[in-house]
Design a binder for these strands. Structure first.
Lengths: 136, 136
DNA sequence: ATTATAAACAGAAATAATTTCTATTTAAGG
DNA sequence: CCTTAAATAGAAATTATTTCTGTTTATAAT
């Protein structure tokens, strides 16, 4: 929790109750959640919490490297906690059964600057699987 | 053109003017296009062409392996022609300047069945860059 | 502590990609 | 040429996300 707060502070962003609550949700559940998923969990805590605030904060937290964001084909953005490597781009594997997220090691693409004559600008990878616990 | 038509035939799908026109668009432009991009190009050819038909056909062509589909963070699905390897999953690099698409070689993830205890179900990778032509 | 201020907020409304529904048309085999 | 299931058009619905406006609040300076 503390290190995430520090990241916000270092970037000059305010430590608001909403932001702390959102980070707390991810710290405790270690799953990927949609914006609406976060919103409904927040509603347990706050009588009033606007969905636009959730969207705004999730994006802010992604920009800080606190959350990672993936875009599946369901038209929804999914967010999850980055537990390490905030300063390096990296990828995640997500359990399609329980939603758990873990970071993957280095990607072969990470160090490539040129591929087939293309200057690499960015790349995304998303791996979906079934975790050991859910496989049983 | 012909091989794509054959793929449709082999799957028992009808060879309709819309489908031929959509494939033709991709064969001629070799770029990733959004559903609406395809639709507006189709409008040059057909007075009437429903957007729902475009969506349906694009998805059908993806299922056949004729097109590839990527989901960027702009909330739009992007489609491009698969010029080879219809029967194997593979990834693409897209030029963010001109939209050109090329296939990437094998991905290190392709042969992995288990990672960190997860049974790998599927994975997506999208690489964006600037092609040699656009770099000049 | 108090206050000033820019950032963050709630809520309503707008936006826009995609999907659904229904009735009509058409490709393709017999 | 017919038959029929698949494909189509168009309208309407759905829904994730964004925008807008006015209000509140965290934070830093007093």
């Amino acid at each position: 929790m503390k290190p995430y707060i520090d990241i916000l502070k270092n970037k000059g962003l305010k430590i608001t109750p909403r932001r702390k609550a959102i980070i707390d949700i991810f710290v405790n559940c270690h799953k990927h959640l949609t914006s609406e998923g976060v919103w409904s969990l927040l509603s347990n805590e706050f009588d009033k919490c606007g969905l636009p605030s959730v969207y705004r904060n999730l994006e802010t937290l992604v920009e800080c490297g606190i959350l990672t964001r993936i875009q599946q084909f369901d038209r929804k953005k999914h967010y999850g906690l980055c537990t390490e490597h905030h300063n390096h781009p990296h990828h995640h594997i997500t359990c399609i059964s329980c939603g758990k997220v873990e970071e993957l090691g280095a990607c072969e693409m990470d160090n490539k600057r040129i591929i087939k004559g293309y200057k690499v600008v960015n790349h995304f990878m998303q791996v979906n699987g079934i975790c050991a616990g859910c496989s049983k």
